[in-house]
Computed example of a mutant assay.
Amino acid sequence: MKQIERKGSPQRAICALLGATPGMTIAAIAAARGVHPRAIARQVQALMKEGFVCGGGYPRQYRMTSKPMPAPVASTSQSAVVTRARRREKEATDKPFGIPSVGELERVVSSWVGS
């Protein structure tokens, strides 16, 4: 299972949440993670299939099993490049729009017109 091996994956976050607070329902996990319950249900099903989580009772409550979590896989150089590019893009889009100084707009428009 590739998702469980990545650091910060949704499945790893769900396992950490269940490890800290055993006996949570899908709705409680979804509320704690801020994700739709259907997405949580799919992730929990995958975790149950791999043996990291078990569930029982009514309403069904999920707990971590004794199966140890695998260590996160180290990032590759390509993933580091992608992460830096995404961070730069986010910083560029989060930068507040600056109002041009007096005369700057006229200079830019006149350079377009060629005057």
Rank of each mutant, 00 (worst) to 15 (best):
A41F: 10
K2A: 13
E50M: 11
A71I: 06
P37V: 02
A39R: 11
G57F: 04
I4P: 04
M64H: 06
A92G: 02
L105E: 06
G51Q: 04
E5P: 03
M1Q: 09
K90W: 01
S111I: 01
V81R: 12
T83G: 03
P100Q: 10
A16Q: 12
R60T: 15
T65C: 14
G51Y: 05
D94M: 15
R6V: 05
I4S: 03
M64K: 05
S111K: 06
K90D: 09
T83K: 11
G19K: 02
P70A: 09
I40V: 15
R84Q: 13
W112E: 14
Y62P: 06
E5Y: 03
S110F: 11
K95F: 07
K7E: 12
A28H: 03
A71R: 13
M64F: 02
E91C: 05
P72C: 00
P68E: 05
S75W: 01
R42K: 12
W112N: 12
P22L: 06
R12D: 10
G23Q: 13
G103S: 07
T25P: 00
V73W: 00
I26F: 06
A31P: 08
P96W: 00
G51R: 07
E106N: 12
L17F: 06
V109P: 08
S79C: 05
M24S: 06
A46V: 00
G114F: 01
V73A: 13
P10F: 04
A30L: 00
P22C: 08
K67I: 10
P100K: 12
R42P: 03
A41H: 14
R12L: 07
S115E: 14
E91W: 09
V109S: 01
R63W: 14
S9C: 07
P22D: 08
E106C: 02
P72I: 03
G34F: 01
S75D: 12
R86A: 08
P70Q: 03
A31R: 15
I4G: 03
Q61L: 07
A16S: 13
I40L: 01
R33I: 04
Q11A: 11
H36L: 06
M24Y: 05
T21Q: 15
A85I: 10
E5M: 06
R87E: 05
G19Q: 02
R12Y: 06
I26T: 14
C15V: 14
A80D: 01
A31T: 13
A32N: 02
M1A: 11
S101N: 13
V109N: 07
A41T: 12
G98W: 04
T76E: 10
S115R: 13
C54G: 09
V82D: 02
A30Y: 00
T83S: 11
P72W: 11
P70S: 01
T65H: 14
P72N: 08
M69F: 10
Q61V: 11
G98Y: 05
V108Q: 09
T76R: 03
G56P: 11
E5N: 07
E89D: 09
G34L: 05
